[in-house]
Amino acid sequence: MIDTPSTPLTGPQGPKPRKSFSRRNIFLYGTLLTIALFYALPLYVMFVTSLKGMPEIRLGNVFSPPLEVTFEPWVKAWSEACTGLTCNGLSTGFWNSVQITIPSVILSIIIASVNGYALSNWKFKGADAFFTILIFGAFIPYQVMLYPIVIMLREIGLYGSLGGLVLVHTVFGMPILTLLFRNYFTSLPEELFKAARVDGAGFWRIYTQVMVPMSLPIFTVAVILQVTGIWNDFLFGVVYTSPDNYPMTVSLNNIVNSTQGVKEYNVNMAATILTGLVPLSIYFVSGRLFVRGIAAGAVKG
């Protein structure tokens, strides 16, 4: 693709028109198609496996489409699959996850947005020091803080409960969300804040009536980030809740990797899809905002 360095800036401008069936295009699209197929394959395998009956699975291969579509594995995964001795399926885990995710997302976003607001508009002495600690905290392996938090939760009587897990998610969501909101609020024109000050509005009034209404996009990004992150969590769920309160990822793992009984691969795959459904739907619906959410993780403060 070397353009001959002929007389510059004369003649037709813009890139050289390309034939759509050039060798380069066939190579490019061929490669991309192959790669896309590789990435899509597991999702496809999950779906076809979950729609087959066990006899068909034993005979066939994982990639073949189901000859006889059955939704029984889905029903079974949802309400009958066993973890050890209890056979309530994933439904309990699902509702636990809902009960964990909703308050965690709301609480963590409220706290982090107020933090970000305080850090950008109401900076007090030492605020940046705490913020720096917070950001470095994001890099500390969770394993280091696992047990001290067990003790803290036990002290306040929340160990093993959903409330305790909500607190844990709020704490560990704080670094990235605070960074996200701080960066966003500092990018807003300062005049707005000053004008509100002149009009006599205080800390909370400016927050609720000026900042929040202006920041809906960043709140959406934060919600996407948190819902997928908290829904997908496994470690905190298994450490800080009791078996009755296990989130969906933990019950999924217990169902699939339970050693008792005959392995029902179709039920396992149905359960796996069911667990992945919430973050996947969010991902496919939100599109670019999801990308913005993860890119926010890469933005340095």
């Binding site: 990435y39 997908n232 969590d233 990822t249 999924l252 667990t275 992945g276 996947l280 599109g287 993860i294």
Partner: peptide, 13 residues
């Protein structure tokens, strides 16, 4: 979208 969707899934899945 196709290449990034696995990132939305949990490690357990």
């Amino acid at each position: 979208t196709v290449i990034l969707y696995p990132y939305a899934l949990s490690f357990v899945v």
